[in-house]
Design a protein around this nucleic acid. Structure first.
Lengths: 228, 228
DNA sequence: ACCTGAACACCGTTCAAGT
DNA sequence: ACCTGAACACCGTTCAAGT
């Protein structure tokens, strides 16, 4: 329990004696940066307006000059997370379509599984995206769709394939959070030897199986439509 | 904004004059029932210990005699939700394996999509399951696995197929919550006519496509292993 | 225009009582 | 054994000031 000392506590001698800050001494960027750092170092759950203000050495209410609400602050944090996430996944575009999908969505899952802040902001939270963030998201989709259509898929099928695989990847992340994460609250200890343990499938195995299965399905779809 | 009046407000004349309740007048069941009703009528978010106590006409702290924490209360609520959810899905077992999977997982998604309390408790929240709840869950899986193995799948593949489809369904629900729900916070208004709109795929279409695609993949897998 | 403390209406939880 | 109010340590947000 050491290290839990960063509460709001003020040592008895020096009573909260922060000087009033100058007029231009805070900025939206600075607040965003501080919030992101705090959530990064601890967790999104532990990001609160008072804790953030304390960290920035600012009055709590000052934050509200730059962000109408915590919600709005989180929205902007999500934009940053999305941009960083976007950069974290880079897949060579010269792969065959099935290899591309495998690489892309495996990275998609791994990255979000291993960065809990990105996961909290992007996967768990539905936030209002700015036109700019929307543009980036659409561009990503376009790359995948492009590769699939060039491989012979109809545009609609390519779009749906992307939607399906990203939904699947996010589902896998959600599942991981709840069952397979090292700090998951869920513990399974009961044993019923006469029944098959449906949780014996580890997350990695299961994810890879599902991804390959979906790609097998797409391959069959491609073969079907090629025949006609 | 009418109907927002069920705050903790007490009319000025009659100051909170609740009589002290008798010794055996509360029970864990009663609390669970009240909590479930409150969350059902409003939302899980709006379930708080003070609001629940008020509804049950009980001192807030009395709840803590029966439940160590709100977390524990939510765990028990989840058990109830799981049991009800289990009953809400009944699929005839005499279907062909692919029809069975389609029916089962479509129902799985529809039911959780349309009951936000079940969704909050079962999908969004990772909770510690009792041995009993675990038994029920495993039994469900067993039925699916049984049908698949009888159709010729290896036990491991059957297990993985189940895991994959339930992960996919939960991913679809998560996606629905964030993008397609009528009361979703996310609004897309920006238009880029030169790009394909990756969100034009409605949730229902996309889900059905993914489900059928996965089944197509499984069919191909079955054909492969039958050859050997 | 920007920064602030006090105040408000909430939380979940503990603790020392009451009966 | 069971029920309780007061109290604690937090939240997010508003408002009427200060500079």
């Amino acid at each position: 329990m050491r290290g839990e000392d960063d509460r709001v506590s003020v040592s008895p001698g020096e009573r909260s004696v922060r000087k009033r800050r100058a007029r231009g001494s805070i900025s939206a960027d600075e607040i965003l940066h501080g919030a992101y750092e705090l959530a990064s170092a601890e967790s999104l759950d532990s990001l609160s307006m008072p804790r953030l203000a304390q960290r920035l050495d600012v009055g709590v209410t000052s934050i509200y000059w730059y962000f109408r609400s915590k919600e709005e602050l989180l929205d902007v944090m999500t934009e940053r997370a999305l941009a960083e996430f976007d950069q974290a996944i880079n897949v060579p575009v010269d792969l065959a379509w099935d290899e591309y999908l495998t690489t892309y969505f495996t990275a998609y899952r791994d990255v979000l599984r291993d960065n809990s802040l990105w996961c909290d902001l992007i996967v768990m939270r539905g936030s209002a995206l700015s036109p700019e963030a929307l543009r980036v998201a659409k561009q990503r989709v376009d790359v995948v769709v492009d590769i699939l259509t060039k491989a012979g898929f109809a545009t609609d099928d390519a779009l749906r394939a992307h939607a399906v695989l990203s939904v699947y990847a996010r589902g896998a992340i959600l599942h991981y959070r709840q069952w397979d994460s090292p700090d998951s609250p869920v513990r399974i200890d009961a044993e019923f030897p006469d029944q098959i343990d449906p949780f014996s499938v580890t997350a990695d195995e299961a994810f890879a199986f599902g991804l390959q299965n979906a790609i097998r399905g797409l391959r069959a779809l491609l073969a079907q439509s090629a025949k006609r």
